[in-house]
Amino acid sequence: MQSIFDILGIYWINAYHSVNLYLINGATRMSIERREARQPWILLSPALAAVALLLFVPLMFIVVYSFWLRSAVGADTAGFHLDNWQKALSDPFYRYILLNTLKIAAITTVLCAALGYPAAYFIARSRGNKMILLLLLMLPFWISYIIRTMSWINILGASGAVNTALMSLGIIASPIQMLYNEAAVILGLVHFLLPFMVLNVYVSLEGIDTNLEDAATSLGATRWQSFLQVTLPLSLPGLAAGGLLCFVLGAGTYITPLVLGGPRDAMFANLVFEAIITQLNWPLGSALSLLLLMVLGVLVAIYNRYLGMSQLAKGLG
């Protein structure tokens, strides 16, 4: 059991820990022995070159590209034009979609927290088969996103489980339309993102010394009080980290609205997809994707500023 758990589960926890470890005390973790100073750079250079060439330079490139102009025939016109940015920032439709995307991501995050926190608490405090519970928790990470999304069609579709059951019970005469609306999109996103929330909350709950709760109870607090006063505040960093992940991943998706949403349920990433793939308007698509990057980047920066590293450090005990 141990090693199966190893393969499936421990990675995410390890990955989570190592990100935090490096954020917290990476600088102090030094190798005991210093060898030639050149050797690590030889080892690092392929990966660094890949990241530079396939991420950083392309990002800079689309910054430049967003000032170019689309031409109907042939190559886009290079230059410094503000047209795309003007359109991206002032078009009321784009603004509506942006706000709607943030709203959908926010609702999704709150739902994930409400569903995920008690589940994570149960796993962290259960005495029984913690391994099995954790293994089950990791399993969704290994099941493809598109399959988890489309699985809701079998549940909510016209001939899906819910409609079939209601019709055979005689409660309804014809199928109810439950798919292809905003609620279905949110449902799909919650289903996709919930494991991220549970995992983050679980890791921070696991880091809390249970003696603290016992101490609170022995000093006269009820279990509920000791949870509210001790456990919940100490687990907030995990909740915040999980929330950030849910929000950012949720706000950047375009597949879920395409599969479970109707024609009017587009999210901001759908606009990017539309501009790049359908309209082939690459300069505008560049501006739109940079706008998305900036909006989400601001959120991550706010998180770092207010809930950042010291809180995370506390959460890891």
Partner: peptide, 14 residues
Amino acid sequence: LVPEVVLAVALLLF
């Protein structure tokens, strides 16, 4: 850390 859509666009265009 970069949203995958943005990574996808940047890489495709570059």
